[in-house]
Amino acid sequence: MKAAVNSILLIEDDEATNFLNQVIINECNCFKSIHISINAKDALEYLMAIGKDNNCNSIKLPGIILLDINLPGMDGWEFLDHYGKLNLWGFNKTIVVVLTISPIEKNLCKIRDYDYLNDYLEKPLTFEKLNYILRKFNDQGKA
């Protein structure tokens, strides 16, 4: 599926998972760039740097964020708490998807707390899951 998504942000601490996700994303050929943050704090700093500029480079603004929940230090839930408070230019156009090994049933109550969380998927990322996310991106008019 070809989609007009400028960039994707992967927030994942596992190198092997990042490698496999990059392979799938690159083969999809739907993104102009991929940015990887191996922890939530670095991801927030990256997003704040982009969002501070009202004329920000839209190539760097992630159209999609794939977030692991089980991160060292600041976990994915804490990331979402901070992300929701950013209120920076352009972030209402970003699809945020949790991609984790934690089953959804374990986190249903937490998921409801984040109205800007667009989906929750279990690892691993597959072409089918990526296409599902891209369809959601396009259907929500964020392309």
Rank of each mutant, 00 (worst) to 15 (best):
D14F: 07
E15G: 02
T17Q: 13
F19M: 13
L20I: 12
I25R: 01
C28L: 12
C30H: 02
S33W: 04
I34S: 06
S37F: 06
S37Y: 07
N39M: 09
K41G: 05
L44P: 02
Y46N: 10
L47T: 05
M48I: 12
I50C: 07
G51C: 12
K52M: 15
N54C: 12
N54M: 13
N55R: 13
C56W: 12
N57G: 09
S58K: 15
K60V: 11
P62A: 01
P62K: 03
G63R: 02
G63V: 01
I64Y: 03
I65F: 03
L66T: 05
N70P: 02
N70K: 15
L71Q: 06
D75V: 08
D75W: 07
G76S: 08
L80W: 00
H82P: 01
G84P: 04
L86K: 05
L86S: 07
L86M: 15
L86N: 06
L86E: 02
W89A: 12
F91K: 10
N92D: 15
K93T: 14
T94E: 03
V98Y: 02
L99E: 04
T100W: 04
I101M: 10
I101K: 09
S102H: 07
P103E: 07
P103H: 04
P103G: 00
I104N: 08
E105L: 12
E105G: 03
L108G: 00
C109W: 10
C109R: 14
I111W: 07
I111E: 10
I111L: 11
R112M: 12
D113Y: 00
D115M: 09
D115E: 11
D115A: 04
Y120K: 04
Y120G: 03
L121N: 00
K123S: 08
P124I: 06
K129S: 04
L130T: 01
N131I: 04
D139I: 00
G141L: 11
